[in-house]
Computed example of a mutant assay.
Amino acid sequence: MRTGRFLSLEGGEGAGKSTQARALAAALDARGIAAVITREPGGSEGAEAIRALLMHGEAARWNPQGEALLFAAARADHVEKVIRPAIAAGHWVICDRYIDSTRAYQGAAGGLDDAAILALHAFGSGGLLPDRTFWLALPVELGAARATRRDGESADRFARRGNDFHGAVTEAFAGFAAAEPERFRRIDATLTPSAVTQAMLDALADWLP
Protein backbone atom coordinates (compact mmCIF):
# COMPACT_ATOMS: atom_id res chain seq x y z
CA MET A 1 0.00 0.00 0.00
CA ARG A 2 1.22 3.49 -0.86
CA THR A 3 2.44 5.56 2.08
CA GLY A 4 -0.06 8.15 3.25
CA ARG A 5 1.07 11.75 3.54
CA PHE A 6 -0.28 14.76 5.40
CA LEU A 7 0.02 18.16 3.71
CA SER A 8 -1.24 21.49 4.99
CA LEU A 9 -1.71 24.80 3.18
CA GLU A 10 -1.24 27.91 5.28
CA GLY A 11 -1.30 31.65 4.70
CA GLY A 12 -3.21 34.83 5.25
CA GLU A 13 -6.52 35.95 3.80
CA GLY A 14 -6.83 35.78 0.01
CA ALA A 15 -3.75 33.60 -0.51
CA GLY A 16 -5.68 31.04 -2.55
CA LYS A 17 -5.46 28.09 -0.17
CA SER A 18 -8.80 26.52 -1.06
CA THR A 19 -8.20 26.90 -4.80
CA GLN A 20 -4.73 25.43 -4.50
CA ALA A 21 -5.91 22.53 -2.35
CA ARG A 22 -8.25 21.49 -5.17
CA ALA A 23 -5.61 22.02 -7.84
CA LEU A 24 -3.00 20.04 -5.93
CA ALA A 25 -5.44 17.17 -5.36
CA ALA A 26 -6.20 17.06 -9.09
CA ALA A 27 -2.49 17.06 -9.94
CA LEU A 28 -1.84 14.22 -7.51
CA ASP A 29 -4.80 12.25 -8.86
CA ALA A 30 -3.31 12.56 -12.36
CA ARG A 31 -0.21 10.85 -10.93
CA GLY A 32 -2.23 8.03 -9.43
CA ILE A 33 -2.21 9.37 -5.87
CA ALA A 34 -5.53 9.43 -4.03
CA ALA A 35 -5.92 12.69 -2.14
CA VAL A 36 -8.43 13.77 0.48
CA ILE A 37 -9.20 17.51 0.67
CA THR A 38 -10.27 18.82 4.05
CA ARG A 39 -10.23 22.10 5.97
CA GLU A 40 -9.98 23.75 9.35
CA PRO A 41 -11.92 24.62 11.24
CA GLY A 42 -14.12 21.80 10.02
CA GLY A 43 -13.59 18.63 8.06
CA SER A 44 -15.69 16.35 10.27
CA GLU A 45 -19.29 16.61 11.44
CA GLY A 46 -18.37 17.77 14.93
CA ALA A 47 -15.70 20.16 13.70
CA GLU A 48 -18.05 21.71 11.15
CA ALA A 49 -20.51 22.47 13.95
CA ILE A 50 -17.74 24.27 15.84
CA ARG A 51 -16.74 26.08 12.63
CA ALA A 52 -20.11 27.86 12.59
CA LEU A 53 -19.43 29.19 16.10
CA LEU A 54 -15.94 30.40 15.18
CA MET A 55 -16.46 31.96 11.77
CA HIS A 56 -19.70 33.87 12.20
CA GLY A 57 -20.73 36.77 14.40
CA GLU A 58 -18.91 39.85 15.58
CA ALA A 59 -15.11 39.96 15.61
CA ALA A 60 -15.16 40.17 19.42
CA ARG A 61 -17.54 37.22 19.84
CA TRP A 62 -14.70 35.12 21.31
CA ASN A 63 -11.47 36.16 22.93
CA PRO A 64 -8.23 34.48 21.75
CA GLN A 65 -8.37 31.95 24.59
CA GLY A 66 -11.90 30.90 23.66
CA GLU A 67 -10.95 30.68 20.00
CA ALA A 68 -7.93 28.51 20.76
CA LEU A 69 -10.02 26.13 22.84
CA LEU A 70 -12.69 25.85 20.14
CA PHE A 71 -10.09 25.28 17.43
CA ALA A 72 -8.43 22.60 19.55
CA ALA A 73 -11.74 20.82 20.12
CA ALA A 74 -12.61 20.95 16.41
CA ARG A 75 -9.15 19.71 15.46
CA ALA A 76 -9.30 16.80 17.91
CA ASP A 77 -12.46 15.51 16.22
CA HIS A 78 -11.11 16.22 12.73
CA VAL A 79 -7.85 14.36 13.36
CA GLU A 80 -9.59 11.35 14.90
CA LYS A 81 -12.42 11.04 12.38
CA VAL A 82 -10.80 12.15 9.10
CA ILE A 83 -7.06 12.81 9.01
CA ARG A 84 -5.58 9.79 10.79
CA PRO A 85 -7.91 7.25 9.09
CA ALA A 86 -7.13 8.70 5.63
CA ILE A 87 -3.37 8.57 6.23
CA ALA A 88 -3.66 5.02 7.55
CA ALA A 89 -5.52 4.05 4.37
CA GLY A 90 -2.60 5.31 2.28
CA HIS A 91 -4.24 8.54 1.09
CA TRP A 92 -2.59 11.94 0.91
CA VAL A 93 -4.48 14.44 3.07
CA ILE A 94 -4.50 18.06 1.90
CA CYS A 95 -5.72 20.33 4.69
CA ASP A 96 -6.71 23.96 4.11
CA ARG A 97 -5.26 25.40 7.37
CA TYR A 98 -4.16 23.43 10.42
CA ILE A 99 -2.36 24.04 13.74
CA ASP A 100 -0.06 26.73 12.33
CA SER A 101 -3.06 28.98 11.67
CA THR A 102 -3.99 28.77 15.34
CA ARG A 103 -0.38 29.55 16.26
CA ALA A 104 -0.46 32.59 13.94
CA TYR A 105 -3.97 33.96 14.51
CA GLN A 106 -4.60 33.25 18.19
CA GLY A 107 -0.93 33.04 19.13
CA ALA A 108 1.20 35.67 17.44
CA ALA A 109 -1.64 38.03 16.47
CA GLY A 110 -3.91 37.23 19.42
CA GLY A 111 -1.27 37.35 22.12
CA LEU A 112 -1.38 33.72 23.30
CA ASP A 113 1.74 31.77 24.20
CA ASP A 114 2.85 29.40 21.44
CA ALA A 115 3.76 26.71 23.97
CA ALA A 116 0.23 26.81 25.40
CA ILE A 117 -1.30 26.33 21.93
CA LEU A 118 1.03 23.42 21.21
CA ALA A 119 0.18 21.88 24.59
CA LEU A 120 -3.50 21.99 23.68
CA HIS A 121 -2.63 20.38 20.36
CA ALA A 122 -0.65 17.65 22.10
CA PHE A 123 -3.59 16.92 24.40
CA GLY A 124 -6.38 17.07 21.81
CA SER A 125 -4.73 15.74 18.66
CA GLY A 126 -1.71 13.83 19.89
CA GLY A 127 0.57 16.55 18.54
CA LEU A 128 0.06 15.40 14.94
CA LEU A 129 1.92 17.67 12.51
CA PRO A 130 1.84 17.69 8.70
CA ASP A 131 4.63 15.97 6.80
CA ARG A 132 4.93 19.13 4.72
CA THR A 133 3.38 22.58 5.07
CA PHE A 134 3.06 25.02 2.19
CA TRP A 135 3.03 28.65 3.25
CA LEU A 136 1.33 30.61 0.46
CA ALA A 137 3.08 33.93 1.01
CA LEU A 138 1.27 37.08 -0.06
CA PRO A 139 1.53 40.78 0.90
CA VAL A 140 -1.22 41.73 3.35
CA GLU A 141 -2.69 44.48 1.17
CA LEU A 142 -2.94 42.21 -1.88
CA GLY A 143 -4.50 39.45 0.20
CA ALA A 144 -7.06 41.86 1.63
CA ALA A 145 -7.99 43.08 -1.85
CA ARG A 146 -8.42 39.50 -3.09
CA ALA A 147 -10.50 38.55 -0.06
CA THR A 148 -12.75 41.59 -0.51
CA ARG A 149 -13.38 40.71 -4.16
CA ARG A 150 -14.14 37.14 -3.15
CA ASP A 151 -16.30 37.70 -0.07
CA GLY A 152 -17.72 41.21 -0.30
CA GLU A 153 -19.97 41.83 2.70
CA SER A 154 -19.95 38.15 3.70
CA ALA A 155 -16.39 38.16 5.07
CA ASP A 156 -15.94 36.03 8.19
CA ARG A 157 -14.98 37.45 11.58
CA PHE A 158 -11.27 36.82 11.04
CA ALA A 159 -11.08 38.38 7.58
CA ARG A 160 -12.73 41.56 8.94
CA ARG A 161 -9.82 42.29 11.26
CA GLY A 162 -7.42 45.07 10.33
CA ASN A 163 -4.13 45.07 8.47
CA ASP A 164 -2.10 45.26 11.69
CA PHE A 165 -3.61 41.96 12.82
CA HIS A 166 -3.05 40.32 9.45
CA GLY A 167 0.47 41.72 9.29
CA ALA A 168 1.23 39.94 12.57
CA VAL A 169 -0.21 36.72 11.08
CA THR A 170 2.08 37.02 8.04
CA GLU A 171 5.12 37.65 10.24
CA ALA A 172 4.23 34.60 12.30
CA PHE A 173 4.12 32.32 9.27
CA ALA A 174 7.48 33.68 8.14
CA GLY A 175 8.90 32.89 11.57
CA PHE A 176 7.50 29.36 11.56
CA ALA A 177 8.94 28.70 8.11
CA ALA A 178 12.37 29.94 9.18
CA ALA A 179 12.31 27.85 12.36
CA GLU A 180 11.11 24.63 10.69
CA PRO A 181 12.66 24.47 7.21
CA GLU A 182 12.38 20.68 7.12
CA ARG A 183 8.55 20.95 7.22
CA PHE A 184 7.73 24.33 5.68
CA ARG A 185 8.01 25.35 2.04
CA ARG A 186 7.47 29.01 1.14
CA ILE A 187 5.38 29.40 -2.02
CA ASP A 188 5.04 32.77 -3.75
CA ALA A 189 1.27 33.27 -3.92
CA THR A 190 1.61 36.32 -6.19
CA LEU A 191 2.31 33.89 -9.07
CA THR A 192 -0.41 32.68 -11.41
CA PRO A 193 -2.56 29.87 -9.97
CA SER A 194 -0.98 27.29 -12.27
CA ALA A 195 2.53 28.44 -11.29
CA VAL A 196 1.65 28.16 -7.59
CA THR A 197 0.42 24.60 -8.13
CA GLN A 198 3.59 23.71 -10.02
CA ALA A 199 5.74 25.19 -7.25
CA MET A 200 4.02 22.91 -4.73
CA LEU A 201 4.51 19.89 -6.98
CA ASP A 202 8.18 20.79 -7.36
CA ALA A 203 8.43 20.89 -3.57
CA LEU A 204 6.96 17.37 -3.43
CA ALA A 205 9.28 15.93 -6.07
CA ASP A 206 11.07 13.72 -3.53
CA TRP A 207 7.81 11.89 -2.79
CA LEU A 208 6.16 11.78 -6.22
CA PRO A 209 6.25 8.68 -8.43
Rank of each mutant, 00 (worst) to 15 (best):
H78R: 08
A144P: 03
T38R: 06
R61F: 04
G124K: 02
G42C: 10
W62M: 13
G42H: 02
G126L: 09
T38K: 07
I94K: 00
L24D: 03
A52H: 15
G4R: 00
P181D: 10
Y105C: 05
R103L: 15
T19Y: 04
L69G: 05
Q20R: 10
S8R: 01
A172P: 00
R161F: 04
T102V: 06
F184G: 03
A88F: 05
A147M: 11
V82I: 15
R161G: 02
A21N: 03
P193T: 09
F184Y: 15
A189I: 06
H56A: 15
R51E: 11
G12N: 02
V196R: 03
A34Q: 11
A86Q: 00
E48T: 13
G32W: 07
S101G: 10
A15M: 04
I50G: 03
D202G: 14
P41A: 07
L136V: 06
F134W: 11
F134E: 04
C95K: 02
A52V: 13
T38F: 07
L120M: 15
A60C: 09
R61T: 14
I33S: 03
E80N: 11
E48I: 05
L118S: 11
I83K: 01
A74L: 08
A195R: 13
L208C: 08
L129I: 04
P193D: 07
R132K: 14
I117H: 00
A137W: 01
G110D: 08
A72T: 12
A86N: 00
R146H: 09
L69R: 06
A168S: 12
